[in-house]
């Protein structure tokens, strides 16, 4: 009976390792490769940790299997009673401590780029692309007027505090230029939400009362899934939206279309000129 149980437990360990090892290739589950430069670095960290934990997992499972099998087959020797081994305790405290310390130090450059504002790409910081306000249950987006140039940090702060007449508004559909870092200012209109674009590996909580800058870069021109990653109420699942990364030109055209739409006065042939008039006033 002992043999059965030792084989049983060893078998499931092997199944677990094999299932995880083949799951990306089988398409069962595994994140697809990140589509942003910082995302690739985050993936590298993820794999590093995955390798360390895999080695540890296999090591402990082999040891456990050995102990089980030995205990089941060797009935002659008597077990030895001990109060524990001081050197063993020291080893399995210090080795994991070093591993954790290594991870903590090794990830600093990535974390710094991702979260420390002084290390953000400065071009993106100086010209934020939009303000995104999460609310139950949608994402409201405000772009600065096309051509609006921010003169320094205080100017950006003023824009965040006080909307301007030329601002463009939309919902659930954030357009950004691809292949360069872009920055949005994230806020919440009600409860806590979380801004999450899985393929770009960017996730940031939206906290009521705070304006949080978030930067990301999409390496490809395509529509990315954008979801809320913080349970925010019964309609949480409705907060699925879209981030469209596109060439600079397409982005410009998009904003132009949005502007025409927003300043539409319902008189078709004259919609263009009235939008132009609006622009002059806003400057």
């Amino acid at each position: 009976m002992g043999k059965f149980w030792s084989i049983f437990f060893i078998f499931w360990s092997i199944v677990a390792v094999v299932a995880v090892a083949i799951s990306p290739a089988m398409g069962w589950w595994f994140p697809t490769a990140a589509e942003s430069p910082l995302g690739e670095q985050i993936d590298d960290l993820f794999f590093l940790i995955l390798y360390i934990t895999t080695i540890t997992f296999i090591g402990t499972q082999v040891a456990m299997g050995y102990v089980l099998w030995r205990g089941a087959t060797n009935t002659d020797d008597r077990a030895e009673f001990s109060h524990g081994s001081h050197s063993l305790e020291v080893i399995w405290t210090i080795v994991p401590a070093f591993i954790l310390l290594f991870i903590a130090l090794y990830q600093i450059p990535v974390w710094e780029q991702f979260r420390i504002q002084s290390h953000f790409p400065q071009d993106a910081v100086n010209s934020p692309i939009a303000e995104v306000t999460a609310r139950q249950f949608e994402w409201r987006i405000r772009y600065p007027a096309p051509g609006r140039v921010f003169k320094g940090k205080s100017d950006i702060e003023r824009w965040l505090k006080q909307p301007e007449p030329g601002d463009l508004y939309t919902v659930n559909d954030l357009h950004v230029p691809s292949n360069k870092p872009v920055l949005i200012h994230l806020r919440s209109g009600d409860v806590q939400h979380s801004f999450f674009i899985p393929d770009l590996r960017v996730k940031q909580d939206a906290v009521p009362g705070m304006v949080i800058p978030v930067w990301f870069e999409a390496s490809r021109s395509k529509a990315y899934e954008w979801v809320c990653a913080e349970l925010c109420g019964w309609g949480h699942y409705k907060m699925k939206a879209r981030v469209v990364a596109e060439s600079d030109e397409d982005f410009k055209n998009y904003l132009h279309e949005l502007e025409l739409e927003q300043f539409d006065d319902g008189v078709p042939e004259l919609a263009d000129s009235s939008a132009a008039g609006e622009e002059e006033v806003s400057e």
Partner: peptide, 14 residues
């Protein structure tokens, strides 16, 4: 499609 800002009617843009 656009929802009603200021109310609980969300946007069904997608």
């Amino acid at each position: 499609k656009l929802g009603i800002p200021g109310t609980y009617m969300p946007s069904f843009m997608l």
